[in-house]
Design a protein around this nucleic acid. Structure first.
Lengths: 210, 210
DNA sequence: CACTAATGTGTACAGTTGTTCACTAATGTG
DNA sequence: CACATTAGTGAACAACTGTACACATTAGTG
């Protein structure tokens, strides 16, 4: 009777559910411990609605990974547009990365969790996104003529290490409050230091190889 | 009547419970998603026994972190004893690390999960273990006169990066089957390559700073 | 050897979970 | 505009959850 079930935009509930999961992750919960009822409750939706959009929680996780890919691509685009001088490349990139990580906090939290998560598929998806990211980075470095003395393989390893290092910094960043400027700045400096160390290593690689 | 409740060695059930949790983690479950009943079932113990040893699952996690510390210390001791020549230092250390990671698989799996886990305390505990590990590594490098041109701070950052890199490799390693020799060897080579890159960077650090 | 603290057990209960089902409203297609 | 499809709802269920309680057994103490 007083039944105001109304369908608004298509896919709206789907988004609400995905956001709800991210919100719970943002509140400190681990994705692997979330239940269907919990997510639907947070989304303000009846439990059965879940099945209209996802087969189970793993499925939801997979679709989150897809969206994560979009976030990463946006970040790359911005980095490519804003990094002008090569000498400030590292500082600027780290800055952009930290900004994105802060404004998409829950997404990156989900990513950090998923790396050692319980769904093999989600794990593989995130790894795949990281590989893509690394290969794009390698392209950029080639394009900017910043890695001319490195073999393809060595460049690949270097970029992989860079991406891993940044991903690990992510877990530092997500462990401190967004408004804790001091700590955030510490992480920024340390991450920059890491990357500089790696690039110095890459720059001196061949010669030391003998 | 036929009530064979018997107390064997003290702390035996405690161990059984901790092992049970690790076993479940080893089977692909995420620690954050484990329940008390589930763990006690796996341990072959009645649910109420759990409370004799732990206040809740977080508490169990914390105690696992403590044991993890012991495992890491054992690994360090072995590395210190077996790494003879400085020129093979990286290869040998990576080898020892991989061996330990394989034979204490579930422990390291737990560690990898806990880094982005749901209990802040566990997270902090693991981080603390990693810091300790890094500082010990710094001591060793100093002792071996392998980092004489680096400031304390730069050495600290370098060792931190090394530990993070190895920890990340851990997640690669735990993602492949123990008996998949080819993949394990790939990971070993890649990790070695990472560390060499970092050490080349460290060796050329000051000069490039200017 | 008696006694106390520690440990293990069985039962119980209220709350939550995932999932199914039949039903209804809105949407977009022809 | 009829109609099939999609999306949302509520009630129901059996299975499982964490936790509390009273009780039984053991270990180690003096």
């Amino acid at each position: 009777m007083a039944d105001h079930r109304q369908r608004r935009k298509p896919g709206e509930t789907r988004e609400k559910l995905m956001n709800a999961a991210l919100e719970l992750v943002g509140k400190g919960r681990h994705f692997a411990s979330l239940g269907i009822r919990e997510v639907t409750r947070q989304a303000g939706v009846v439990p059965t609605s879940f099945y209209r959009h996802f087969r189970n929680m793993d499925d939801l996780g997979l679709q989150l990974v897809d969206e994560l890919g979009l976030v990463l691509r946006r970040m790359m685009r911005e980095a490519r547009g804003n990094v002008l001088q090569a000498d400030k490349l590292i500082e600027e990139s780290v800055g952009i990365f930290i900004n994105h990580a802060q404004s998409n906090r829950n997404f990156f939290l989900f990513m950090a969790q998923g790396l050692a998560g319980e769904s093999r598929a989600v794990q593989e998806g995130i790894r795949s996104e990281m590989r893509f990211f690394a290969s794009e980075l390698a392209n950029d470095l080639r394009r900017l003529r910043l890695a001319e003395h490195l073999s393809d393989k060595d460049l690949d390893v270097t970029c992989d290490l860079v991406v891993r290092t940044v991903a690990f910094s992510l877990t530092d960043l997500l462990g401190v409050a967004v408004e804790d400027d001091y700590q955030v700045d510490q992480i920024r400096k340390r991450t920059t230091h890491f990357l500089q160390l790696i690039f110095v290593g890459a720059a001196n690689w061949q010669s030391d190889k003998a």
